[in-house]
Design a protein around this nucleic acid. Structure first.
Length: 269
DNA sequence: AAAACTACCTGAGTGC
DNA sequence: TGCACTCAGGTAGTTT
């Protein structure tokens, strides 16, 4: 479920509760996530959480020694609740904090991850090859044009490639392409710089708007306080079965690279 | 080298 | 009501 806006929402939600807190206890109820949670994770007990940040879809939790790297996968979410609140089903990890509150990580599909590193987390093998953040200045028309040049792959798969730009998943790729008037199947190398400029702006606007609304709740994503995100109401093509809000043409759905693409056949060319 | 496909999981929804 | 089936927001690794 979680793409960049949901990860950002989660990160902002937990930050005030975890920053400056001591980890009194870590409980791992299920270590079989995307990668097994190592037994040595127990060693972080007693350490201080100094800061929380995001890189792509990863949440980085810097400790007074070492860094925790979290990924929400497809179905992961985090909540802050009083320590001692009975664990829900699929609540695999719990960090009990000095404040008496606890960070709880729930992930039914177990595609998420919790990793630990002693060295620079940005150099971790999972993070070192990530492309620029879509909301940073490094992601611009010039950059995207170079990345798309001579590529025969569909533009949608290019903007979902984390080595090119990080954090754009299926929902926001569909929405951003609609905003830019570009068909998801169009070959990346055959789009003008001017149109790619529209796309860069559209990706930014879409992500910012979604962050502002607390992300998208489709199945079970919730914000840290348990409330849903409200961007779902703003989706213009993703999951839409019916007319385009701009021109009235019926929204098309097409499977592309094992994943559903939604687009307006009239507005997007 | 680039593009396409596979695998990892559970749960929700659909149709019979 | 229940069973069988399809599909889902991610992404590393493998195959074509």
């Amino acid at each position: 479920m979680p793409e960049l806006p949901e990860v950002e929402t989660t990160m902002r939600g937990i930050a005030p509760y975890v920053c400056g807190q001591k980890i009194k206890q870590i409980i791992v109820r299920e270590r079989r996530l995307r990668w097994p949670v190592v037994k040595e994770i127990a060693d972080i007990k007693g350490r201080m959480i100094e800061s929380v940040s995001r890189r792509g879809k990863y949440i980085l939790m810097r400790l007074d020694r070492g860094t925790l790297i979290w990924h929400l996968g497809m179905s992961g979410s985090m909540r802050i609740l009083p320590s001692g609140t009975p664990p829900e089903k699929h609540e695999h990890i719990e960090l009990q904090l000095g404040s008496g509150l606890a960070l709880k990580f729930k992930d039914p599909r177990r595609f998420g991850a919790l990793l630990y590193t002693d060295t620079d987390p940005l150099q971790h093998r999972l993070l070192s090859k990530l492309g620029p953040e879509p909301l940073s200045h490094d992601f611009n028309a010039e950059y995207l044009y170079t990345a798309c040049k001579n590529k025969s792959a569909a533009i949608k798969s290019v903007i979902m490639d984390s080595r090119i730009v990080t954090g754009v998943g299926n929902i926001y790729a569909c929405e951003a392409l609609f905003g830019a008037g570009i068909r998801p199947t169009r070959k990346a190398g055959r789009i003008s710089k001017k149109r790619l400029n529209f796309l860069v702006d559209s990706i930014r606007d879409t992500l910012r708007d979604a962050i502002e609304k607390g992300g998208t709740t489709l199945q079970d994503f919730t914000q840290v306080d348990g409330k849903p995100g409200y961007f779902g109401q703003s989706l213009q093509v993703y999951g839409v079965r019916g007319p385009c809000g701009v021109c009235g043409t019926t929204i098309s759905k097409q499977v592309q690279g094992q994943r559903s693409s939604y687009f307006c056949p009239k507005c997007q060319t």
